[in-house]
Design a protein around this nucleic acid. Structure first.
Length: 542
RNA sequence: GCCCCCUUAGCUCAGUAGGAUAGAGCACAGGAUUCCUAAUCCUGGUGUCAGAGGUUCGAAUCCUCUAGGGGGCACCA
């Protein structure tokens, strides 16, 4: 029986309407296992004293049989003390059907697309991309468990000026490798990785492209460079443990006419106009602070041009919601994309843009200067190899996505043995160790265990935390905040470690042993569920 | 100049949809293991929630202003 559902039912019976019943975990034990301020929030609209309402709700809740005690306290809090029998029953429910207990069909199969990373294929991924990758993957996993049908997509910016510059930069390096002078373009890419790539290109094609003007060979160089970069990006992400369902090419949106069709749609709606030889989108009608150019006066499209089409296309594909995870340096872009959605006659709630804040890379307290242009930056791969993928992800997922983040490589490495991620994983390893040592016949016979033997304070505390998972989970899904799972897992691990040092699981007493194995099994299941969301491994030994 | 984000313990960060006495990790000091993994546990304490007003029964949370930090302001991507 779900506590929230119980309260909602009680409210319905009393004819009280409220959009949301807040349930919190009180800090003080005297305030119960759970508490709700709902009486106070409805007091104003009901024009009644909150305590009166609270009393009424409390009385109704007392009769449900879930609670040992229901108190009304302070200005109108309702404090709930759960019956032990309820806790024990819940543990059995969890073990009987873990997925049913831990996941909830909030989305009802609604289709959601999460687009993330989408790094330009002009170089290796850096640490900021890693943060986007960790957050996007965790959010996707979270929503999936929340009953949404999720598709993960990477948008490839393989059209436009940046990849042109990339191609020409590679050409320059190629010439350099063969002794011909050709300058790297002013705003080109100077990273050493292109030098390496050029040398391997020489091995492949020798001097076939050497004595020709760049214009003639540019298609080859752009294509070659983009494919190689994309290959690196895919490999980096794969090694980081992040996968995508779909890779959407920008170039393809031009080639298959999507961009064209979208422009026609906007034109039909009257939101495009010509001025100074360029084609403009009237985004100011929808809250942007100026209109934006779609086709430049020289006839070439802006980046925005395909981006409009991309968002249109995404929504056309039948997603009820699309979520973009962007670096915070793109925040200025938000109003114009929202304008696009509105202009196309779609409700803006269908587009969520999550801004992931910048990552400050430090080394022993000192900032590491990064410049993409000169190719001086620390790559995700370097960090992954030095610090480890699990640790890196965990650090990213113990912060809100919109908080600035200091990532100190030295700290992440140095503290690796007492790193929070190991703390949580260690709980998992310990339980596995117990299971290895345990009499296998007991493990197979856990259905016969009696959870009501779990009466020690540490057992009850652990049990309560365990059963809190669905509440945390729902909150995380609603708020699109996977980091809540991370914090919860640390708290759960902490209570487990405390329990572990206080009590032996494997004892002489067969019944106690089985009850405790049952509890451990529950913790194991919840830890794994959480690890699955965060995308970290669940080691059986450490 | 305009816009967005951030400011909570020495450091890094949480603080759940406005709720009760603001939390964790790290760092520092001391202690715990005959027995399932000591990557563990226990005990120590600190806050002008950047500042000032306002809304509210109630504000770290909402509004306004100020200060500091970061980011963005193109017919660039």
């Amino acid at each position: 029986m779900d506590v929230r559902a119980t309260i909602e039912e009680a409210l319905r019976d009393l004819g009280i309407e409220t959009p949301f019943v807040e349930i919190e975990q009180p800090r003080v034990v005297e305030h119960g296992d759970l508490a709700t301020p709902v009486a106070m929030s409805v007091a104003r609209s009901l024009r009644r004293p909150p305590r009166d309402i609270a009393e009424e709700i409390a009385e109704r809740l007392s009769s449900t049989g879930l609670f040992e005690r229901v108190d009304v306290a302070g200005p109108g809090f309702i404090n709930l003390f759960l019956k032990r029998q309820y806790l024990w029953n819940e543990l059995l429910r969890l073990l009987k059907d873990p997925a049913g207990y831990l996941r909830k069909d909030i989305g009802k199969g609604e289709r959601v697309q999460v687009e993330f990373v989408s790094a330009n294929p002009t170089g290796p991924l850096h640490l900021g991309h890693g943060r986007g990758a960790a957050v996007g993957a965790a959010l996707s996993a979270l929503l999936q468990r929340g009953g949404y049908s999720v598709e993960r997509e990477f948008y490839i910016n393989d059209a436009g000026r940046q990849v042109q510059l990339l191609g020409e930069s590679l050409f320059a390096r190629y010439c350099e490798a063969l002794g011909r002078e050709y300058p790297i373009p002013e705003e080109g890419y100077r990273g050493e990785y292109l030098g390496d790539l050029a040398r391997s290109l020489v091995d492949e094609v020798s001097d076939r492209y050497l004595n020709r003007p760049f214009q003639e060979v540019q298609d080859f160089f752009v294509e070659y460079a983009v494919q190689k970069m994309l290959g690196w990006i895919k490999r980096d992400l794969e090694d980081f443990g992040v996968t995508f369902d779909r890779w959407q090419s920008e170039k393809a949106l031009y080639q298959d006419g999507t961009v064209q069709r979208c422009h026609e749609e906007l034109k039909k709606r009257g939101f495009l106009y010509e001025k100074d030889g360029a084609l403009w989108f009237r985004s100011t009608l929808f809250g942007d602070d100026k209109d934006r150019v779609v086709i430049k006066s020289d006839g070439t499209p802006t980046y925005f041009s395909s981006d409009i089409a991309y968002h249109w296309y995404k929504l056309q594909r039948g997603f009820h919601r699309i979520i973009n995870i962007w670096g915070a340096d793109h925040h200025g872009y938000v109003p114009r994309i929202k304008a696009v959605v509105k202009a196309l006659g779609l409700p803006e709630e269908r587009l969520h843009i999550l801004l992931v804040q910048m990552v400050n890379l430090l080394k022993g307290g000192r900032p590491v200067q990064m410049s993409k242009r000169y190719g001086e930056f620390v790559t995700l791969r370097e960090v992954m190899e030095e610090v480890g993928a699990d640790t890196t992800k965990f650090i990213f997922l113990t912060r809100r996505h919109d908080s600035h983040l200091d990532f100190d490589i030295e700290v992440a490495k140095a503290s690796s043995s007492e790193n929070p991620v190991y703390y949580v994983q260690y709980a998992h390893a310990r339980i596995n160790s117990i299971f290895r040592k345990a009499d296998q016949r007991l493990l197979e016979d856990l259905k016969g265990a009696d959870p009501s033997l779990l009466e020690q304070d540490e057992e009850i505390a652990l049990l309560k935390k365990l059963l809190l998972y669905p509440l945390i989970f729902e909150g995380a899904v609603r708020a699109l905040e996977p980091h809540r799972i991370t914090f919860y897992l640390q708290e759960l691990a902490s209570l487990f470690h405390y329990f572990y040092t206080k009590h032996r699981v494997l004892t002489e007493d067969r019944d106690i042993t089985m009850a405790r194995l049952l509890l451990c099994k529950g913790v194991l299941i919840v830890l794994r569920e959480g690890f699955g969301i965060l995308g970290i491994t669940a080691p059986e030994k450490m």
